[in-house]
Every structure is written in structure tokens, then in C-alpha cells.
């Protein structure tokens, strides 16, 4: 077998294993480099947490997967981001198609000024026409998956603004799930919610990982320990290490990781 064929087989096998890959990814905003030659992978049907100190480029990396980062003025990117083995720039006809496949939940819960039900259907109803019964079914399924259905089933037509912060964040997850994405990106989704809501969101994510690939940025190392299957550790725009929590804790002599993970114990 030639070297080229071996490489092809390797990349196919990798694509079957990983949902998202970054290859030699460099991102800068204006003249400031944010990510420097980053290569990492995010396994399918697992929760991967991206951790690292503030300003290490975690959110920038996450935002490159659905190209939402490119909305930033002065954004420049080189290298490749692959989704199931295909380059995201070529695999989708439009960037909107990509974003429907790679859903994203942001740090601050953002509900639109309409009812709970309309919020869940906000994205999908703009992409395709839904009959009343289908819309109701989509909303119920998404809310059930986001473990919010029981709390809101009797007040679906009430304004979403009336929900608590934790419920709003789960509503955002439901809204993304209604789009039926393959990958779920979460940028510190529990940063501004109370501990009970944090647990509710974590349980939601754990229940979702069998069907979705979840990539989450977090500063909370305890949370990382609770839910992460795979960890990517980033510092100063560079990947320091990646793997399971145990692998990272046991197999490194890097002082940066030691110092960072000391806070866990």
C-alpha cells in the first residue's frame, strides 16, 4: 500500500472518530494573533470541554467551528476546520447551512421578544414552513430534550422573558436543538446561572451527548471534571494538551498544566 493511500485511510478513520477537527488553524483579529497553528480534534458523541486561562483563545476556537467569528471586524483565518472530515468552507453551500448543522449557545442567555414556543421555533421557522401540528411537535421534542418541557408545558404562549436565567439558557439549547444540528457548541453556558441551574444544564448536556457532539468552553474545572469526556487545554493561543482528564493529569510534566489543574484539588 502506498503512503498516499495509507494517509487517506487514516483520515477516513479519523473522520469516523472525530466530528470536528482543527488543522493548523491560525486566527487573528486585526493585527493581534489569537490562535497560533492550532490542531485538535473533537470526538463524536462526546462532551469535549475547551479549558484554559482567560484570553487563551477558547471562544475564538469555538466560534471558528460555525464561522460566527468571521462576523468580527478584522477577522482573519488560515488553516482548516473540518466537520466529519470535510472542510467547512467547501462542504456547505452557504455559511447559513453550516450554522444550521453546528448549533451554538452563548454565555448570556438570549431570548427573543416573543413567546416560549415562538422562541423554540425562532430559527427553524425561518428555514422552512411548519404546519401548526408539526410546529407544536418540534417545540415539544426540543423542549423535552432540553429538559424544560415539564416546567413550561402549561405556559408555552407566555413571553420567554418571564423565565428564570437557567430556564432561559435551556430554552436557548432547545432553540438550537429544534434546528436538528449535528454538533452543539456552548460558550460558557453556565457562567451566569445559579448552581441549581448549572446542574440542570449539565444534566441536559449529559442526556444529549448520545445524539450530539458537544463542544463546550468552560472556566469551571469542577464542571469539566463532572461532564467532560475529552479536554482540550489551550493557553496563549496554543494547544498545550488534549485528551481525557486522567491522561492530562497523569501524563504531563508541563508546569502550565500543573499550575492550572492544581486548582482542581
Amino acid at each position: 500500500m502506498t503512503y498516499g493511500v495509507m494517509e487517506d485511510i487514516k483520515s477516513i478513520q479519523q473522520a469516523e472518530k472525530d466530528a470536528v477537527e482543527a488543522e493548523c488553524l491560525c486566527i487573528s483579529i486585526g493585527d493581534t494573533p489569537i490562535l497560533k497553528d492550532v490542531s485538535c480534534c473533537f470526538p463524536r458523541h462526546k462532551i469535549t470541554t475547551i479549558v484554559g486561562p482567560s484570553g487563551s483563545g477558547k471562544s475564538t476556537l469555538l466560534r471558528s467551528f460555525n464561522r460566527i467569528g468571521s462576523l468580527t471586524h478584522g477577522y482573519k483565518e488560515s488553516g482548516a476546520v473540518k466537520l466529519f472530515g470535510c472542510d467547512v468552507t467547501g462542504a456547505f453551500e452557504t455559511v447559513e447551512d453550516l450554522r444550521q448543522s453546528v448549533g451554538m449557545v452563548f454565555q448570556k442567555a438570549c431570548v427573543f421578544p416573543c413567546s416560549i414556543k415562538d422562541n423554540v421555533l425562532f430559527g427553524i421557522s425561518k428555514q422552512r414552513k411548519l404546519s401548526k401540528s408539526v410546529a407544536a411537535e418540534v417545540a415539544e421534542t426540543a423542549l423535552r430534550r432540553a429538559t424544560l418541557w415539564e416546567e413550561v408545558k402549561d405556559r408555552l404562549d407566555e413571553p420567554a422573558i418571564s423565565l428564570s436565567l437557567g430556564q432561559k439558557q435551556r430554552l436557548c439549547i432547545a432553540r438550537v436543538l429544534a434546528m436538528q444540528p449535528k454538533v452543539l457548541l456552548l460558550d460558557e453556558p453556565t457562567a451566569s446561572v445559579d448552581p441549581l441551574s448549572v446542574r440542570a444544564i449539565e444534566n441536559t448536556l449529559l442526556s444529549l451527548k448520545s445524539d450530539y457532539t458537544i463542544i463546550m468552553v468552560t472556566h469551571d474545572l469542577h464542571q469539566m471534571r463532572r461532564i467532560a469526556d475529552h479536554i482540550v487545554f489551550l493557553q496563549d493561543g496554543d494547544i498545550v494538551t488534549q485528551g481525557t482528564l486522567e491522561t492530562i493529569k497523569n501524563n504531563t510534566d508541563d508546569d502550565r498544566i500543573k499550575t492550572y489543574f492544581e486548582t482542581l484539588t
Binding site: N66, I68, L71, T94, E96, D97, L98, R99, Q100, G103, M104, F106, K108, C110, F112, P113, F122, G123, K126, Q127, C172, R175, V176, M179
Partner: peptide
């Protein structure tokens, strides 16, 4: 209107015209 609303709309796969029509104009 906070940028987060635009970002959320774009992240849901909405185009610029859809974001303008459904998010910005009503506000």
C-alpha cells in the same frame, strides 16, 4: 440592540436579511 441578538440569529442559520427583518426591524 445588543450584539448577542444578532449573533444568536446568525448562529441559528439566519441570513443577514432574515436577521434584519425578524430581529432588528421589529425592535
Amino acid at each position: 440592540i445588543p450584539t448577542i441578538y444578532r449573533e444568536n440569529a446568525y448562529a441559528l442559520g439566519m441570513s443577514q436579511s432574515q436577521t434584519i427583518w425578524h430581529v432588528l426591524l421589529p425592535q
